[in-house]
């Protein structure tokens, strides 16, 4: 069933169950949010998405209010703006002002909101939560001083990953998100929580001080581990891959696993082979490409001449591209003249 709803004077028909926030986004009307995430169930926690609906005396959260027939919504009035600003000031009153050294500066939803609403001084300044515990795990940095309790990490861990490693604990000012008994995180380290965190509360430990936006290029490609083929984005500074993320608008919806998200350091590893090697008297010696390739060609041609093409075989790689695999088997079949070519599909 379709519902007709009017938002800021613009009308749209939406299917039953669509929220006011979703309808507004279909109309390209911007409503600020912190706790909402399109792939997770709505929660109404941050109160930034409040709107006025005709006939309802108080503002309501648009992320949890389903559209209904004939609903008239106003998303931005002086009163709403003022309320949103107050909500932000309250959140920021308990947030360390250390954007200068924060990994997420420039890519932080909270920072962007403070910027949009021009919040610098804070009339609610006062006591702040202090969090000194550092997790022993090598993947995820959790800085609960920067946590705004939006709950996205809790939801993604449960709803998407099916792990449920963390949840809200304590009440009021003491509220925090942590593993049971505030122990170190012990989970699958997929980093889905890092991907959805709107602040700098969660980050990759290996990203630390490697680079944020300036001088960082982003290149979309495909993960090189299992056969799922998740879309990944490599963040590159200079000639180094410093971070891996995944875009939400890809088929894998931005979700990755521990290898895909944190297993990239082999790329710039110092053990990488950088020169051709020829073994002489049982020891490898560096050689030029020309010399090496001539030697390979000569030996293969000799063996083919004396033992026939079927004395030569090739093992191709499931790590390499389609193009390389195609060229490899063609080299063996058309160049050498043998069908002795295979790869590790069985292993």
């Amino acid at each position: 069933m379709m519902m007709k709803i009017t938002i800021d004077g613009k009308s749209i028909e939406v299917p039953q169950g669509t929220t006011v926030l979703e309808a507004a986004r279909m109309l390209d009307i911007a409503i600020p949010t912190l706790c909402h995430h399109p792939k997770l169930t709505p929660f109404g926690g941050c109160r930034l998405c409040i709107v006025e609906i005709k006939g309802i005396p108080r503002p309501v959260t648009s992320c949890t209010t389903p559209a209904s027939e004939g609903m008239e919504v106003t998303t931005s009035t002086p009163r709403i703006k003022d309320l949103r600003k107050t909500v932000l000031e309250l959140i920021l009153s308990d947030h360390p002002n250390d954007c200068m050294v924060c990994e997420r500066a420039g890519d932080c939803t909270l920072q962007e909101m403070a910027y949009a609403y021009g919040i610098r001084e804070n009339r609610f300044a006062g006591e702040r939560r202090i969090y000194t515990k550092r997790d022993g795990n090598p993947f995820l940095e959790r800085d609960m001083e920067k946590c705004i309790l939006c709950g996205r990490c809790v939801k993604v861990c449960d709803e998407v990953q099916g792990v449920g490693a963390i949840d809200f604990t304590y009440r009021g000012f003491q509220s925090k998100i942590c593993p049971p008994y505030e122990e170190d995180l012990d989970c699958e380290f997929c980093g889905q929580c890092v991907a959805v965190c709107p602040t700098g509360a969660l980050a990759g430990k290996m990203w630390s001080h490697k680079g944020r936006q300036k001088g960082v290029r982003e290149v979309d490609t495909i993960c090189s581990y299992c056969g799922t083929g998740c879309n990944i984005t490599l963040h590159v500074k200079g000639n180094e891959v410093i971070r891996v993320t995944s875009r939400e608008d890809t088929w894998n919806e931005g979700w990755l696993c521990v290898k895909g998200r944190f297993g990239y350091q082999f790329i710039n590893n110092p053990d990488r082979l950088a020169k051709p090697l020829i073994k002489r008297d049982g020891k490898f010696e560096e050689a030029s490409w020309d010399e090496t390739l001539e030697y390979v060609g000569k030996r293969l041609n000799e063996i083919k001449a004396s033992h026939g093409p079927d004395a030569i075989g090739g093992l191709s790689s499931a790590r390499c591209t389609n193009e390389e695999n195609y060229a490899f088997q063609k080299m063996l079949r058309a160049g050498v003249g043998t069908n002795n070519v295979d790869h590790c599909a069985r292993l």
Partner: peptide, 16 residues
């Protein structure tokens, strides 16, 4: 498939 391009290596005829 267990590896990023096992499917592709098979498609490409890297089989005897």
């Amino acid at each position: 498939r267990g590896q990023n391009n096992v499917q592709g290596a098979s498609d490409a005829g890297c089989m005897p």
